[in-house]
Simulated scan of single mutants.
Amino acid sequence: MDYFYEEEFYNEPNEFEKQINEFKESLLKSVKQEYLSEMEQLKKENKDLQVIRENLDTIEKEYKEKSRRLDRERNKMEMELKNKRLSELMNGSEVIMYKAYPSGVAQDKCSQCNENRQIEYVTPLGNKAFENCTCSIEKRVYIPEEYIRYSFSLVNSGGHRYVNESSL
C-alpha cells in the first residue's frame, strides 16, 4: 500500500500546479478572445475591400478617360502656344502676295441663239441640226487670291548670308 500512497501523493495537484492551470486557462481564453476579435476585424475589413474591388474597374476606366482627356487638352494647349509664339515671332516679317487662278465665266447671251445657246439650221438634206453658239463658250478670267509669305534670313560668322523662305 505504500506504493499506492506515493502515487496518489504525486498525482494530486498542489497549489502551484492549480495556479499554473488557472493561468493556462486564462491565457487560453485571452488568446481565444484576441483571435475572435481579430477575425471579426478582418471580416469587416474584407467586406469593405469587397466593395472597393467591385468598383475598381469603374474607377480605373474613369481614371484612364480623365488621363486621355488631360493629354488631349495638354496637346491642344501646346499647339495653341506654338502657333501663338510663331505668329508673334513672325510679326513684321510677313509679305502679302497674290496668285491668280483661272476661272470660267459665262458670256452674255446673244440674240442669234435659243435658250440653250444653240443655233438652229437646216442641213442640205433638209434635216434640222443644232450647233453651239459662240456665246456659250465660257470666258476665262483670272481671280487673285491672297497669300502671306514669311521669310527667314540667317547670317553666319563668316559673313555669308543664307536665306530660307517658306510660305504659309
Rank of each mutant, 00 (worst) to 15 (best):
M1W: 05
M1Y: 08
Y3P: 03
F4P: 00
Y5M: 07
E7H: 06
Y10C: 08
Y10S: 09
Y10V: 15
N11G: 02
E12T: 15
N14A: 02
E15T: 15
K18G: 02
Q19W: 14
I20W: 09
E22K: 13
K24F: 03
K24I: 12
K24T: 05
E25N: 10
E25I: 08
E25M: 07
L28E: 13
S30R: 12
S30C: 04
Q33K: 11
Y35I: 02
Y35M: 01
L36A: 08
E38W: 03
M39C: 12
M39P: 06
E40H: 03
E40D: 05
E45C: 00
E45W: 02
N46W: 00
K47D: 13
L49D: 11
Q50E: 13
Q50T: 06
Q50V: 05
I52S: 13
E54N: 08
N55P: 00
E60H: 02
E60D: 09
K61N: 08
E62S: 10
E62G: 09
Y63E: 13
K66N: 14
S67N: 11
R68L: 12
R68D: 09
E73H: 01
R74F: 01
N75E: 02
K76F: 00
K76N: 01
M77W: 00
E78R: 12
L81T: 02
K82D: 04
K82A: 12
N83I: 02
N83P: 00
S87T: 12
E88C: 00
L89Y: 02
L89E: 11
G92M: 03
S93I: 11
M97S: 15
Y98F: 14
P102D: 04
G104E: 15
V105H: 01
V105N: 08
A106G: 08
Q107H: 07
Q107S: 13
S111C: 01
Q112Y: 09
Q112D: 12
N114W: 05
N114P: 03
N114L: 06
N114F: 04
E115D: 14
N116G: 07
N116C: 01
Q118T: 09
E120P: 01
Y121L: 07
V122T: 15
T123G: 05
T123D: 13
P124Q: 11
P124I: 03
G126N: 04
G126D: 06
N127I: 10
K128V: 15
A129T: 06
F130G: 01
E131M: 10
N132W: 03
T134E: 13
C135P: 05
I137Q: 12
E138S: 14
E138I: 10
K139H: 10
K139I: 12
R140A: 03
Y142R: 03
P144T: 09
E146D: 08
E146A: 13
R149Y: 07
S151G: 04
S151T: 09
F152N: 02
F152H: 06
L154V: 14
N156W: 04
S157K: 11
G159R: 01
R161F: 08
Y162E: 02
Y162D: 01
N164E: 06
E165D: 14
